[in-house]
Design a protein around this nucleic acid. Structure first.
Lengths: 243, 243
DNA sequence: CCTAGTTACGTACACCGTACGTAGTGCGCT
DNA sequence: AGCGCACTACGTACGGTGTACGTAACTAGG
């Protein structure tokens, strides 16, 4: 009998049920759902083995029958929300389809603001992640590029979606457990930024800051949309992209 | 006297020394350096208030005189490594300069593999981060775009650099505290991926997988380089980008 | 000079991940 | 058929975490 956790293991390879012994009380999906419920309601830091076990209604250590390490619980969570991806039949217009996918992913992250933070750590591709990747490749079918390049496009686009949305959600997630509001925090940060920029040490930043102040509050949605457009353009053969 | 931490606060706004009371034994830079030393040597999870205090040679709770919450320590760390940015006089070729910046940032993250993970959480722009942003804008001076668009370009590029490098470093960081090697872990993950793809459930992914297997191990450096090129192209007015 | 605001730091608390041991359960093999 | 073993369930315990709070020493501003 090998020592516990002496060799690497992918949670998805481990069978849910081996046949031997009493049948497990919960499924992997049950556990993931419980963890997601807690993260949604109380934030990622509330997702402890104890809390998840309590949410399920079992003893803390029982969880370790299903999930060897907490990190694996995180993998389950990521994949669980991946099931929410609304996968539509590709329209034939790869650009429109990818923009739709991006918006849809962004919406998913806004529903589960802890997702970007979790993605930064690990991974491991669970079944739903794979399904989503496959879908993206399907949408890109009309595009005349190698699969390698397409994968790079998908990775790049997903990265952009994640970082943009992450920045947007960071303060929201953080102020959740603070006694002040997101608006207050943002105001303080903006005031600080203004004060720094006013020192004259960063002239171009100051110019950018002023430009932003003139044109009112930034429309994050529009910024996101523009970034998507740029990235997709960069891979469009009609726009001069090769291979 | 207000309750501790009852309102939002930016660590950089708080003066290092107020004048009243005994003069502080350490500087913010000392503390950040100690934390960075620990993170580099033992990984991010070893950066606890106790360990940092021990590294400095003071009592745990003394740290809280300098840093109200652990999160602020993280901000200090990010900014401390930001000081390593090797800022060169712009050459006049914005494209080359930005590529150089990107590579340089990537090298920085490879020196401090915990950086991407930390960036995913918070931030707040410290002085070194601002200096780097200003530098990027300076490099983009020859480019005929609004400051708003330039900021979007910088954000996008930094996002790409971060996500790419993060993926590359994730397993390295994780296996650090595990009894097996990064190679072993990657082998297991690849085997799993292969098995999934072999089920036939993801035909296009399978094709991509095969394509990759044929052409040998992926050259991450080249992938990174290509991604940079694409993004920069997307903002190049000569390539048809507007405004 | 005095006193209010600091620094320094020990103690204490609630909570964390998880190693380990034990008891009960039911499948697979002989 | 029945034995044995792998499995489920879970209580206890340990070493760690962030940090609230209280106290003593110190020093610049009024």
């Amino acid at each position: 009998m090998a020592a516990r956790g002496a060799e690497p293991e992918v949670i998805w390879s481990r069978p849910e049920r081996t046949g031997r012994g009493p049948r497990p009380t919960y499924s992997r999906a049950d556990i993931a759902a419980a963890a997601v419920r807690i993260a949604d309601a109380q934030g990622l830091e509330a997702v402890s083995m104890r809390h998840v076990a309590a949410e399920l209604g079992c003893g803390t250590m029982s969880l370790y029958n299903y999930v060897p390490r907490k990190e694996d619980l995180h993998e389950l969570m990521i994949d669980a929300v991946g099931a929410e991806h609304d996968i539509k039949e590709p329209s034939g217009d790869w650009r429109a389809d990818m923009i739709r996918n991006a918006h849809e992913t962004r919406a998913l992250m806004r529903r589960h603001p802890w997702v970007p933070r979790l993605m930064a750590g690990v991974y491991g591709f669970g079944p739903n992640t794979l399904r989503y990747l496959e879908h993206c490749l399907t949408c890109l079918e009309p595009l005349d590029l190698s699969y390698g390049t397409k994968m790079e496009l998908v990775a790049l686009l997903n990265g952009v979606v994640t970082t943009y949305t992450a920045n947007e959600l960071a303060t929201a997630e953080r102020t959740r457990s603070m006694p002040w509001s997101e608006e207050e925090e943002n105001a303080v940060r903006m005031a600080y930024l203004g004060s720094q920029v006013a020192t004259g040490a960063y002239p171009r930043l100051a110019a950018a800051f002023m430009e932003g102040a003139d044109s009112g509050p930034i429309d994050l949605e529009a910024v996101f949309e523009r970034a998507l457009g740029r990235v997709l353009d960069a891979y469009d053969p009609k726009r001069g992209a090769e291979r």
